[in-house]
Computed example of a mutant assay.
Amino acid sequence: MEGYVYVMSNKAMPGLVKVGFTTGTPEERAAQLNGTHSPHPVVVEYSTHVPDARAVEREGHLRLRKHREGKEWFRCSRELAINAIKRAAGDLARNEFSRVEQERQQAAYQEQARQHREAEKRARDEEQRKAGLRIAVEQRYGPRLAKCFPSFWSVYGWSCVTVWFVIACFPGATFMGGLFGGAILGFILAFVAKGVLDDRAMKSPAYVAAAAERQRELDAIDRSGPPPAPASSTSTPAKPTVSTRATAPAPRLVRGDYTIEPPTGTIAADKSPEQLARERAARVNQDPAA
């Protein structure tokens, strides 16, 4: 009978797990078991799809027979029950779901997200620290560099004097005309002269030396601080899937590869093929539908 074999638990019954099978989905079966008799809902711990769910359930019950509390309930850890179902299903296990693995993935995602947030915060703090140091360097070298350039108003004053002297050389020039004409033409001449003088100032030894010192300090600030974190730790982690149950799983070997926590208790030893064949034949004789 094709279906799901599952392991369920209930917070109201600590230490007990339910091992059963259903031809529907484990979630539907858990919803059927929930009722007013328990203050907590039944939780699906593990499930797997197998061709003969009833046979795998029986085999799992036989492996857990030393821990049977009653009917389908066993007093053992969920890891022990899951291992028993995995060993009973063998290579036939398909479409497995594990709440333990889902919780582990969620915890890993949350840890990666926390590390990502911390890395971003460290990067922001480091950039703010460097920005403050750059501002301090600019404020310290700003007045020193500014002294290398002539003041515009001083250049404008000398430009006005030069223009007034030129205008005074022309016959018929009036005082007011020379005054306003000198002010206007002096502004134009000062604008041109300021550009020429600034270019010369930027090539002066004093400016070149100060600018080189400022750049060395700025480069030292850029090189300071912690080394950049690896790309894997700063990249945004991928969010895990909501459910680990696959839609079209590929066959894989499952014997002995499920180690979540050290199981508490023991599982019955594997039986020989001849013994399993005799037990299945006996079950068929007792229940032809098996």
Score class of each variant (00 low, 15 high):
residue 3 G to S: 06
residue 4 Y to K: 06
residue 8 M to H: 03
residue 9 S to M: 01
residue 14 P to G: 04
residue 17 V to W: 06
residue 21 F to I: 02
residue 22 T to H: 00
residue 26 P to A: 04
residue 26 P to S: 03
residue 29 R to M: 06
residue 29 R to F: 04
residue 30 A to Y: 07
residue 34 N to H: 07
residue 35 G to N: 10
residue 36 T to N: 11
residue 41 P to D: 11
residue 45 E to N: 11
residue 58 R to A: 05
residue 59 E to R: 05
residue 60 G to F: 00
residue 66 K to I: 01
residue 71 K to G: 14
residue 72 E to T: 05
residue 75 R to T: 10
residue 78 R to A: 08
residue 79 E to L: 02
residue 84 A to S: 10
residue 88 A to V: 03
residue 90 G to R: 05
residue 97 F to V: 07
residue 101 E to V: 12
residue 103 E to A: 15
residue 107 A to S: 15
residue 108 A to G: 13
residue 110 Q to A: 15
residue 111 E to A: 15
residue 114 R to N: 13
residue 120 E to W: 09
residue 130 K to S: 03
residue 132 G to K: 14
residue 133 L to K: 10
residue 136 A to D: 13
residue 149 F to E: 13
residue 149 F to P: 03
residue 160 C to R: 12
residue 160 C to A: 12
residue 161 V to P: 00
residue 165 F to W: 14
residue 169 C to Q: 12
residue 172 G to L: 11
residue 177 G to F: 14
residue 182 G to N: 04
residue 184 I to E: 02
residue 186 G to T: 09
residue 188 I to F: 14
residue 190 A to F: 09
residue 198 D to N: 14
residue 200 R to E: 07
residue 205 P to S: 05
residue 211 A to D: 08
residue 228 P to L: 10
residue 232 S to A: 14
residue 236 T to F: 07
residue 240 P to F: 05
residue 241 T to P: 07
residue 243 S to M: 06
residue 251 P to W: 06
residue 252 R to Y: 03
residue 254 V to L: 12
residue 256 G to H: 03
residue 265 G to K: 03
residue 266 T to F: 02
residue 268 A to P: 01
residue 276 L to Y: 00
residue 276 L to T: 01
residue 279 E to V: 03
residue 281 A to V: 04
residue 287 D to W: 01
residue 288 P to I: 10
